[in-house]
Simulated assay, not measured.
Amino acid sequence: MLIKRRTFLKAGAAAGTLPLLGRTAAADEFKAGYVYVGPIGDFGYSYQHDQGRLAAEKALGVKSTYVEKVPEGADAERVIRSLADDGHKIIFTTSFGFMDATLKVARDYPDVYFEHATGYKRADNMATYNIRFYEGRYIQGIIAGMMSKAGVVGYIGSIPIPEVIMGMNAFILGMRSINPNAKIKQVFINSWYDPGKEADAAKALLDQGADIVAQHTDSPAPLQVAAERGLKGFGQASDMIKFAPNAQLTSSIDQWDNYYIDRTKAAMDGTWKTGDTWGGLKSGMLKMANYANMPDNVRKAAIETEQGIRDGKIVIFKGPINAQDGSAKVAAGQTLNDGDIAGMNWLAEGVEGDLPK
């Protein structure tokens, strides 16, 4: 059963500031910890988090530790607890499956600050943060709608949680705004990072008639498969164009730098507060890579769509929107709020294949 990824706090309604051992921490005494689900060499999601860690180190002069390739289970609690025991005063855990482990350790270490990416559970010393990845998927859908000759995109999903589902739905909404008959053929690989499975999934989807590849998985493998076949695709989390210079159309780039700098600084000076942050193009937490390997009119449409989302003139989840079976999910003129988007557990019309149970 799918569960809501987060609930939302109104601005200013978060719990009060926690003192950091009663004083401001000096940079050379302060340690920050980071826990990654994948390797920093994935050149995708975990790589971008590590770029944010390095930015915070450079900006603030703090020491930091990262642990990569941590499974989403009992190992996560062990790693998080070890970082807390070792004197790290703020710990960033960067995958949805780390949520309960982070909360459990946070309760045992009230003088340590915890930040969990993509989750929805919080405490006085545990905040949540994420990026509106779906905004980038909508732009990709616009591009695909204009460039796919078959009208079919192969989309590789990771884990069937709302964060991934909303991106898939945003993609098809963008694509169908150009081509009302467009389709997504999707497959979930039940992993965030598995280059072998990602490549096999891309090959299977292309064999089924897709002529563009999209992904919510973390390696460049699907994009490289597209390149091998002379087709196009989209990168994920970082700019992957160096892996497929003639194939990448664009990539959604996660920008964690400023968040990690600001939150670490707040922990150091005693102004840290719990709460929820969900930023996108407007906030700068999401960027789009250069629009490449496409005609000028497609590039122009992508740039205009990006600006429209940033300005609020384009609202992605605005009705009418139907589910796969044609039933109405969002009525004409209505707009999904953040809570509805964050709890999305249905696929939109035009997306083929069931959600894994």
Rank of each mutant, 00 (worst) to 15 (best):
G319W: 01
M288W: 05
A101Q: 11
A13P: 00
D28Q: 15
K287H: 12
E352W: 03
M147L: 14
E57P: 04
N179D: 13
F96T: 07
Q255R: 15
G145H: 03
G312P: 04
P245L: 05
E57H: 08
V298M: 03
K149F: 06
S95F: 10
V152Q: 01
T250A: 09
Y66F: 12
D311V: 00
Q140S: 14
Q307Y: 00
K31P: 02
Y193A: 13
V213I: 15
G235Q: 02
A27I: 13
Q224A: 15
R132P: 01
Y66D: 00
T118I: 08
Q208E: 10
T118L: 10
D124C: 07
S283Q: 05
G319E: 00
V62A: 04
N190V: 13
W272P: 09
D296E: 12
T118Q: 04
E228L: 12
A106H: 08
R107H: 12
D218C: 09
G22I: 06
G87Y: 05
E198P: 07
F96W: 12
I80P: 09
D254P: 00
S283C: 01
F188Y: 15
R81D: 14
G312Q: 07
Y291A: 05
I189L: 04
L347E: 01
G151L: 01
G326L: 09
Y45L: 12
G279N: 07
P195I: 11
S64C: 04
P245G: 05
K69W: 03
R299P: 00
L9G: 05
